[in-house]
Design a protein around this nucleic acid. Structure first.
Length: 615
RNA sequence: GGCUGCGUAGCUCAACUGGAUAGAGCACUUGACUACGAAUCAAGAGGUUUCAGGUUCGAAUCCUGACGCGGUCACCA
């Protein structure tokens, strides 16, 4: 069966041929949904048709409108405003569509049959707990993976955890030296926070050591000798910090030695590393569960950081990379404005980018997916441009299916989050706060007072999480966003709870309706404006999911849910459901509530937001 | 500085990828619960889309330049 846009488009082409004897085959027909303030559901823009028809836009619109009304069954009316032809679709088309298609469970979703796609998101380091930045990443990545799945793809969810390197060694060293054998259990601290605490402790001790050292004779001579730019002592010491860590610091040396021992596979070091990372994963898993996300496979950098060298060799054989005299390997990407990029060091060891080459291949071997999505912040745009270009030059079979799902950083009202300044918003704290907010708000209402404590807590959790998730996902991914944790999140207006409330209304009316004969629904004839609005919006849902998936953009699903909820609220206000004038109207409106409720639950489900039955 | 992204109501964000009078929410003002749930609805006010040119039937959107704010420019990850 043809869709409405298809019907209307071919109708317009017919009209062009019949009315103007013009071949419209190559003519783009601009069709859009009609703006709220005008009557109709679809609009044809006639400005572009003036050349074919050789008439004024208004005249063309009038003539095509008349033609469509006369020749296309689904069009029962039209109106013309300037060059815009607004078309009114028949009530019986809408009622049939609702009862035949839209009320069905799973409406809008496509079942399988498409490509397999790997979606990577989260991908934290193990030295500190998850924060607000990770939250955006995780929500975005999860929603996108759900969206791709709803659009019919076979989705594999993965993350790669950076579990090695100097950072985790700092935590290990601090724990070893200052920890007194404490464990998360003995301290009663969430395990990843426990480990993160030692990372912070290391930094504090290091700063202390550095400050003391600055008073020494050695420091005085370093200052005299190396402060060539004549900086103030404070400024110089700030810029000298890395050098100090690498060349003078006891703690720095100890951390680096630990890293070396780890790389050599020293059993004691590896055991400590396993123990501390194990704690971190325990904590991460709790946070992931609270956020409602899961992974099909977890990769660890400790297992992938040596990969990719063979691909570099292959690239050398192919002649797409070159080796310098000192033994280092480079790719010349200057023809694509990406400059020269190092792939192997002079000593033959690999780099970040090398590892990513290898990991891409590894994933392809694991899943045979020709599409892979990387959910990573926009600070790494350049990195991924280079990575994808390299994989293309290596002629990897999946090279054309790679997508960097880039998103903007999350700022606080006070500016950027800085771990040094302690302004980082912790993920677990944030969730606690929004749920607390939802709790306060629920105290002012009594809609759930007949439920027991467990049930109420569960509802409040759903409301708080909906507020948080919706607030973040509704913003387009590439946009940098400001998030105010103090005001936590709103529960009214353009929010998750607002959408939930619309859903809860559709459920409440059904509870009240009880068992009822709905067979009269198809006798319903004259649609109210609020009903037409809702149905034509439902009609757009399947296409919207496909478009959103093609653009990797869950924010449009969020905005759609909001608009649908808004129209449901208006409908609720404008018409009676159970007290409607006829039995047909009651039955039809109940079905409409059912369909809207289903779509709201579906759309919000894609975003990772649960719907309560009451609130 | 090179490359790159962004600049829309007091604030947080939209604008179907070039279409109508640039829309929502928050905050502010004002109405609506004896009603299927008021976490709701209705109304008001709020704009030279940073600025200056250009392209065309038509520009927040495309081009050029200026100003402002990010990101990135390691044989780091």
């Amino acid at each position: 069966m043809k869709t409405l846009p298809e019907l209307l488009e071919s109708g317009v082409r017919d009209a062009l041929r019949v009315l103007y004897d013009a071949d419209g085959a190559n003519q783009e027909i601009t069709l859009q949904s009609t703006r709220k303030e005008f009557e109709g559901e679809f609009t044809v823009v006639t400005f572009p048709l003036t050349r074919l028809a050789r008439k004024k836009p208004e005249v063309i619109a009038e003539e095509i409108g008349a033609y469509l009304q006369g020749n296309v069954d689904e069009v029962t009316g039209y109106n013309v405003i300037k060059g815009f032809l607004n078309l009114v679709i028949a009530d019986r088309y809408w009622t049939k569509f609702l009862l035949d298609s839209a009320v069905a469970e799973g409406f809008g979703h496509v079942d399988g049959g498409k490509e397999r796609v790997v979606v990577e998101f989260a991908s934290p380091n193990t030295n500190k707990p998850l924060h607000l930045g990770h939250v955006r990443n995780i929500l975005l990545g999860w929603a996108t993976s759900q969206l791709l799945q709803a659009a019919g793809h076979d989705v594999v969810r993965v993350q790669i955890i950076n579990d090695r390197g100097i950072a985790i060694c700092k935590s290990m060293l601090a724990w070893e030296r200052f920890g007194d054998g404490a464990t998360p259990k003995s301290k009663g601290t969430k395990a990843d926070h426990f480990v993160g605490g030692y990372y912070v402790l290391f930094e504090q001790r290091f700063q202390q050591e550095y400050a003391e050292w600055q008073q020494s004779d050695e420091a005085a001579s370093v200052l005299a000798e190396k402060n060539t730019k004549d900086l103030s002592p404070e400024a110089f010491w700030k810029s000298f910090k890395n050098t100090y860590f690498n060349e003078y610091s006891d703690l720095g040396r100890a951390a680096k030695e630990m890293l070396l021992r780890w790389e050599k596979g020293d059993p004691e070091t590896v055991a400590l590393w396993n123990r501390m990372n194990g704690w971190v994963y325990e904590g991460f898993d709790e946070t992931y569960e609270r956020l409602g996300v899961t992974f099909d496979k977890v990769y660890y950098e400790s297992q992938t950081y040596l990969l990719g060298k063979d691909m570099v060799e292959a690239g050398l054989d192919k002649g797409v990379f070159y080796r310098k005299d000192d033994g280092s390997v480079f790719a010349d990407l200057s023809d694509t404005k990406l400059d020269q990029k190092a792939l192997l060091r002079g000593d033959g060891t690999s780099l970040y980018i090398t590892q990513d080459l290898g990991t891409a291949r590894l994933r392809y071997d694991d899943f045979q997916a020709k599409r892979m999505v990387y959910t990573v912040g926009d600070e790494q745009n350049y990195h991924f441009q280079v990575l994808f270009e390299l994989l293309k030059r290596l002629e990897e079979p999946y090279a054309n299916g790679l997508f960097h799902l880039s998103y903007g950083m999350v700022d606080l009202p006070t500016g950027k989050m800085k771990s040094r300044e302690g302004t980082v918003v912790d993920a677990d704290d944030l969730m606690d706060e929004v749920i607390q907010e939802a709790y306060q708000s629920s105290l002012e209402r009594d809609a759930t007072s007949e439920l027991n404590d467990t049930e109420r807590r569960e509802i409040i959790r759903k409301i708080g999480m909906a507020a948080l998730k919706f607030q973040i996902i509704k913003v387009g991914p590439q946009k940098r966003m400001t998030f105010d944790p103090k005001e936590s999140v709103d529960l009214q207006g353009q929010t998750g709870p607002y959408v939930q409330n619309a859903y809860v209304r559709t459920r409440a009316v059904w509870r009240k309706a009880g068992d009822r004969d709905l067979s009269a629904a198809d006798q319903y004839r004259e649609l109210q404006p609020a009903e037409r609005e809702l149905i034509s919006q439902l009609y757009a849902y399947p296409t919207l999911l496909q478009d959103a998936a093609a653009n990797y953009d869950p924010s449009v699903v969020a905005m759609f849910c909001y608009e649908l909820a808004k129209n449901l609220h208006k409908f609720w206000h404008d018409v009676s459901i159970l007290n409607a004038e006829t039995e047909a109207a009651v039955a039809f409106r109940l079905q409409l509530c059912q369909a809207v409720g289903n779509v709201l639950r579906s759309g919000m489900g894609i975003l990772g937001i649960d719907m309560p039955e009451r609130m």
